[in-house]
Amino acid sequence: MLYAILCYNSEDVVGSWSKEKDDEVMARLAVVQERLKKEGRLGPVARLLPTTAATTLRKSGNEPIIIDGPFAETKEQFLGFYVVDCASLDDALDIAREFSVANPGTGSYEIRPISIFRPGQTST
């Protein structure tokens, strides 16, 4: 089954990383991704720009309301996701554990089984 592994962490923490530290963490995470890719189990991966770049469209009767920033103000922000083919929840948890070893400290991973998946295609 396909699982989404959703990455949450405090933007303040991630934003205070130096470029070197950021590169280092990304390189360690890439090792895990590379292996999953070789096993043919890795779907789309995305890292999102900070929530300051976000805009929310809130449905509201006929005319939706447009709000600057993410919908809810939370202590940890949604920063990115992986889509991984996993045999079971335990398998997905093992992979999330690997990500957490590669990027220790604050934050959390939410593991959500995927209902509909269309990989899509973009030209960029």
Binding site: S10, V13, V14, G15, S16, G105, T106
Partner: peptide, 8 residues
């Protein structure tokens, strides 16, 4: 990671 959390 503690340093990063303290700075933040």
């Amino acid at each position: 990671w503690i340093d990063a959390a303290l700075i933040a």
